[in-house]
């Protein structure tokens, strides 16, 4: 037949894949054995160290191997302390390679606890850590996946190490929220940036209001709203205004429990009858948390 290509069947492909997997597994097992058998308190085998980096690139979640490497680093630190002439330089070279290794491990699992921790730990032992470089790396990772909470954690650690302006970080967090506001991490990060005062609290309220109106079912914004509302500087009028807006929202979305719950937060010291009514609505809308709402009702009744 003209123009027909001979193509592997899926069976053949499967067999090839299985063979490859088996090969990988054997190599992995062998490498692990080798590294662990040469692990000693006072010296290390350079070949094993090299093999261990291969293991980590394939699977960055083996804590044992990260710990093995930390032991080696501590030996190196000690060595460098003894060598006054070139010690520091040698150590820096060694640690830079270590940092590079974590960078190679992150693509295979950007959410590996071990890798992020190791990276920070190495930098803490680094005589001249480049925190600015870390910071831009962090920004890059967050633009790839802005829900990677490891990265947000790392960012908080870094911000404490270098002087970053509040404005910069506020802008950054707004940018991430504009990209996707269903993100507990970026809302949380925002809440750690500053103490809200009467000047900025309204701005935050508008921002989060925009989110809950755009998508009232998304819980992340409601969590932030609750935190903003807990701020003592919010004026009573502002709360009343928001309550009114929520009533409009309830008309549009009568079945959304978050809207009713939001009203509850605003009603805390309000009229008892309205509060009881709202709790009863919640019992119907959110039967999974019925017990909690019943408890609210009992407490409210006690207050009389």
């Amino acid at each position: 037949m003209h123009g027909r290509l001979k193509v592997r069947t899926t069976e053949e492909q499967k067999a090839i894949k299985l063979k490859e997997q088996q090969k990988k597994l054997d190599a992995y097992k062998h490498a692990m054995e080798r590294v662990l058998s040469t692990r000693k308190k006072d010296s290390y085998d350079p070949k094993s160290l090299q093999i261990s980096s291969g293991i980590l690139q394939a699977n960055p979640d083996v804590y044992t191997i990260w710990n093995y490497r930390k032991e080696v680093i501590l030996m190196k630190v000690k060595e460098s302390n003894d060598d006054e002439l070139e010690g520091e330089e040698k150590l820096i070279d060694f640690l830079e390679d270590e940092i590079k290794l974590t960078e190679q491990c992150l693509p295979s699992n950007p959410k590996s606890y071990g890798t992020w921790h190791h990276r920070y730990w190495v930098l803490l032992h680094h005589p001249k850590p480049n925190w600015n470089n870390e910071f831009s790396l962090c920004t890059k990772y967050l633009s790839k996946d802005d829900r990677n909470f490891h990265c947000w954690d790392y960012r908080r650690l870094l911000v404490n190490k270098i002087g970053i302006t509040l404005d910069h970080e506020l802008r950054f967090s707004t940018e991430r929220l504009n990209n996707n506001f269903s993100n507990y991490s970026s809302w949380h990060y925002r809440s750690t940036l500053r103490k809200l005062d009467s000047d900025c609290v309204n701005h935050e309220l508008e921002l989060v209001k925009s989110a809950v109106f755009t998508d009232p079912i998304d819980s992340s914004a409601w969590f932030y709203l609750r935190w903003v509302l807990s701020n003592p500087t919010i004026k009573k009028d502002t709360k009343l205004e928001l309550l009114e807006a929520f009533e409009q929202l309830e008309e549009l979305e009568p079945d959304c429990k978050w809207v009713i719950l939001g009203k509850c937060w605003l009603l805390e010291q309000g009229d008892l009858k309205t509060r009881l009514e709202t709790y009863k609505k919640l019992v119907v809308l959110d039967p999974l948390r019925k017990g909690m709402y019943m408890d609210f009702i009992r407490q409210a009744q006690k207050e009389i």
Partner: peptide, 20 residues
């Protein structure tokens, strides 16, 4: 959804109506 959230030209109630 992100555009609606970030838009500054429409009110919050309009945001909800549009999304709906």
């Amino acid at each position: 959804r992100s555009d609606v959230f970030a838009n500054t030209k429409v009110s919050v109630v309009e945001k909800r109506m549009l999304m709906k």
